[in-house]
């Protein structure tokens, strides 16, 4: 007895263009004799042949921009030319660069390029050109740093992500995309060590008012009391006020540890900005 799966496989392969052979007479007879199988085949034909289902959504132009920026940076950060391709006088500098270059410290290499090109242009009469060139290179370095940090932050390993947080705090504090990713990880990362490190990194920023609602939202989303307390402490440090209703909800939430609740109570005045409770 022919397997029903073989019949379904044959139909799908035909509809996908893998074979020019539709169901043969024997298969067709089996289909007609089995109403349930017939319904499955008809369903497959409907789904596979419906043009509207195949209509694709288009990504935004921003995706293209991001890709081409990444590609451009990757191309400019590629290994320098080999020795036999370059003039005698530049060999020494490029030897140094090739020893320094590796995948992680792309930013260090880019910084070296910045120093080289800035120094190279010091004697030119066109000072605005030097400024524009330096500024563009600085922007590229900042983007490179953010790129390196983002790659680390998306790693499977918590130790790598922790290193990514440290790297981003030291090298790319102002990148918007990177900060968005840090906030996402603050809520979703499964390592409390990474989340604690993100709170520490955010604490080094001067102004958090643009993200304060997200920070307060993330308190309730945490499953680790140390992270919750560090967020509350961050709110106190940055003078982010929390309204009474939100605080009361936290204090009444059964899932929140008693130590966290005690900490909230002890600091209630600073958190609400009220002098009397």
């Amino acid at each position: 007895m022919m397997n029903f799966e073989e019949i379904i496989t044959q139909k799908i392969q035909y509809l996908n263009g893998e074979t020019s052979q539709d169901l043969d007479d024997k298969m067709q007879a089996i289909v007609e004799a089995n109403p349930e199988l017939q319904a499955e085949i008809e369903f497959i034909e409907t789904i596979w042949q419906s043009q509207s289902l195949a209509d694709d959504h288009q990504p935004s132009p921003a995706l293209d921009a991001r890709f081409y920026q990444m590609l451009s940076l990757a191309q400019s950060s590629q290994s320098p030319p080999t020795n036999d391709m370059i003039p005698e006088t530049k060999k020494h500098w490029l030897d140094t660069v090739s020893r320094l270059f590796s995948l992680k410290p792309l930013a260090q290499f880019a910084l070296l390029v910045l120093v080289f090109f800035t120094g190279w242009n010091l004697n030119t009469p066109s000072q605005p050109l030097v400024q524009v060139t330096s500024q563009k290179l600085e922007e590229q370095i900042a983007t490179l740093n953010a790129m390196v940090a983002m790659t680390m932050l998306r790693d499977q390993s918590a130790t790598e992500r922790l290193a990514g947080v440290t790297y981003s705090a030291a090298n790319a504090q102002n990148d918007t995309g990177l900060n968005d990713l840090l906030l996402e990880l603050l809520i979703n990362d499964n390592s409390s060590a990474v989340r604690l490190a993100i709170v520490d990194a955010l604490a080094k920023r001067n102004n958090l008012h643009d993200i304060q609602s997200k920070l307060m939202f993330s308190i309730k989303k945490q499953n680790n009391p140390l992270v919750q307390m560090s967020l509350i402490r961050l709110a106190i440090q940055k003078q982010i006020l929390i309204d009474e209703n939100t605080l009361s909800a936290l204090l009444n939430d059964q899932s929140i540890d008693t130590d966290v609740k005690d900490y909230i109570r002890e600091n209630r005045r600073q958190l609400t900005g009220r002098h009397s409770v």
Partner: peptide
Amino acid sequence: ADHFRKLGNQDIHEPYCE
């Protein structure tokens, strides 16, 4: 899978689980 993995592991523990 990495994306969903990062989302999925915070619910195992009680009473801290959300």
